[in-house]
Amino acid sequence: MDAVLLVLTLLAGLLGAAAGLLLPRPAHRLSVEPEEPWRATAPDGAPLTGWIGPARTAHRGWYGPSTPVTVTVTALLCAALALSAGPVPELCVWLLIAPVLVLLALVDRAVKRLPDVLTLPLAAATAALLGLAALIPGARGSWIHALLGACALGGGYYVLFLVNPRGMGFGDVKLATSLGLALGWYGWGVLMLGALAGFVYSSLYGISLVAMGRATLKTALPFGPFMVAGACTGLLLGGFGA
């Protein structure tokens, strides 16, 4: 590993750790049922006046998803993305969307919901930022392929939603559009790999729960975390192979 890539990886990891420190509070506030307003208080009743800041109160301490876990996961993900992509324009896009993807996975895991307040801006921002990255010398992907990937993966999930709306939420369709943009940047091979990996991860997790007696074949599982994990797998392999 050369010095530039090493420094870039370390910086990306630090940025990811800083972002991960701030994720539990919005995860707590967004983890509500569709008909409920966003949470405005901490578990001890203390009012939350903003979305940014550590998830900690004076009386109850830390709340929401485990802060050490979110810090570690986001730091490792950002560092891995930097290591795989290297000093290219699209890396800025991956580092910006990675914490949002982790946040979406946290919320979906908690309440089986992917809020529009995250999925819709994520899709628009990913498309716009990749368009800018494509204009910068050194970019190793295609914006046209990214747009086609969004149509392909979003369309595919929409078909699955129409066929089985109980097993596939419309939030998954919206998230698939953003993931299709990112994966499509590297081409059809990475797109298919990232999409397939999500289904493989979900199946393996479901089988393990059934084997341990903690679920049945009819148990509904949040699919967002597996979509994110599969997409990140595709992005990592796409970066190394680009």
Rank of each mutant, 00 (worst) to 15 (best):
S84A: 15
L235R: 00
R113H: 14
S203E: 00
L83R: 14
G167R: 04
S142M: 10
A124L: 15
G230Q: 00
T216I: 11
V100D: 02
T49A: 15
L129E: 08
P65L: 10
M192R: 03
T72M: 12
G20M: 04
V4K: 13
L147S: 06
L11E: 08
G171A: 09
G213W: 12
G213K: 11
L153M: 14
V111Q: 06
D108A: 07
L160E: 02
G180W: 00
A125G: 05
L30I: 06
A17D: 05
V71N: 11
G213T: 12
P137S: 08
G64F: 06
L83N: 06
P87E: 06
A150F: 04
Y63D: 10
A128K: 13
G206Y: 04
G224L: 02
P26K: 10
G16Y: 02
L101H: 01
T233A: 04
E35C: 04
P99H: 08
A27H: 03
A134L: 07
H28R: 08
E90H: 07
L153N: 01
V100F: 02
A215M: 12
N164K: 14
G167C: 08
P165V: 06
P65M: 10
G239F: 03
T70H: 12
G155W: 03
L175Y: 00
F170A: 07
C151K: 04
A125E: 08
C151D: 09
V163C: 08
G16H: 02
G131N: 14
R109F: 08
R29C: 14
T57K: 13
C232T: 01
V93L: 05
L236P: 01
F226E: 04
T49H: 15
S31Q: 05
V73N: 00
Y205G: 00
G154T: 03
D116R: 13
L237G: 00
N164C: 09
T233C: 09
G20H: 05
D116N: 15
T233K: 01
G241C: 12
W51V: 13
P47N: 07
M168L: 14
G213R: 12
R113Q: 09
V190R: 02
L15T: 06
R113K: 13
W62T: 13
V32N: 12
R140Q: 15
T41V: 15
L209D: 10
L122G: 03
W38L: 11
A242I: 05
E36S: 13
P43S: 14
L118A: 09
F223R: 01
M1E: 06
N164L: 10
P137Q: 07
F170W: 08
L217H: 13
F170Q: 07
C78R: 01
L106G: 05
L77S: 03
L181Q: 03
R109Y: 07
A40D: 14
R56S: 09
F199L: 12
V73R: 00
P47S: 09
G53C: 10
A182M: 10
P26C: 11
E90N: 07
G45F: 10
A229W: 00
L217P: 03
G20I: 03
V111T: 11
R39A: 07
G13N: 06
A242L: 06
A139Y: 09
W51K: 11
C151L: 15
E36H: 13
S142C: 11
A105N: 11
P65T: 13
T49L: 14
G16P: 01
K112R: 15
L153S: 02
D172M: 09
L196D: 05
R29N: 11
C92S: 15
A133F: 12
